[in-house]
Amino acid sequence: MRTLDRRPPSPEFLFVEEARRQRRSWGENLTFYTGCSYLAGAIGGGATGLLSGVRSFEAGDTTKLRINRVLNSSGHTGRVWGNRLGVIGLIYAGMESGIQAVRDTDDVLNSVAAGLTTGAVYRAARGVRSAAVAGAVGGVLVGVAVTGKQALKRYVPI
């Protein structure tokens, strides 16, 4: 039986440079990092809010009041954490794409430098010391994440 669809199975590109590139574009990067970090923050904040809502139970509370406390607390904390991490993801994606465009290479140093600058920019309004500490923390966190990803690729057969 003949197939009616004769398109090639691989994606087609207009330019050869696009086909050789093994990386997401800056727009895809922006969407991916912002969305993933917002989702992680919302889930983590919701879980933290759930725990604080349960801790705030009082002896005479009805079931309705307890449920309301838990929902309000988890919703508020999830929103706050999601927004904070979403902004951090947005800054990181922009920094990483900018550093990659300036250096014209794609390596681990781009990611670590983006983490460093993201932490510094995020905390810049609180002063130089806070920005320096946050930059160091951001660089270390990204370095650990990149190293862990490379170790996973190397040692875990998937």
Rank of each mutant, 00 (worst) to 15 (best):
A132H: 04
I88S: 03
G115H: 07
R123W: 05
T3G: 10
P8L: 14
S74F: 10
L85D: 13
P157T: 15
R69G: 01
R23G: 05
Y122D: 02
I99V: 09
L116E: 00
A120Y: 10
L141N: 11
G82T: 05
R7C: 02
R129L: 00
E17H: 12
R84V: 15
V137W: 01
P157K: 15
S130C: 07
G148I: 02
V112Q: 06
S130W: 09
V142L: 07
A131S: 13
Q100N: 10
L39P: 02
G148K: 06
V54D: 08
P157C: 13
R7P: 00
V70F: 03
Q100E: 15
L39C: 05
R24H: 13
L141G: 14
R79A: 09
L30M: 10
S73H: 08
T48K: 09
N110R: 04
Y38P: 06
V54G: 04
G27S: 07
G94Q: 05
A59E: 15
L65C: 09
V128K: 13
N72T: 15
S10D: 07
G98T: 14
A101F: 06
A136D: 01
G46M: 02
D5R: 04
V146E: 11
A134P: 00
A145H: 11
Q100W: 03
D107K: 09
K149T: 11
S52A: 05
Y155Q: 08
I67L: 14
G94R: 05
N72M: 10
Y92E: 01
T77Q: 12
V133H: 07
V146P: 13
K153F: 04
I158C: 04
P11V: 14
I88D: 01
R20D: 13
A145M: 11
L65S: 14
L71W: 03
F15I: 06
R7I: 00
T3D: 03
S56V: 03
Y33C: 06
G148H: 10
N29T: 07
G78T: 04
K64H: 14
L39G: 08
S73A: 14
S56G: 08
S25K: 09
G60S: 15
L85M: 12
V146T: 13
I99L: 12
G27Y: 07
Y38M: 08
N83A: 08
I43L: 11
R123V: 00
R2T: 03
V112T: 06
G98S: 15
L116Q: 00
L71F: 09
A101M: 06
R23D: 12
Y155L: 08
P9D: 07
L141V: 08
R84E: 10
P11Q: 07
N72C: 10
R103C: 02
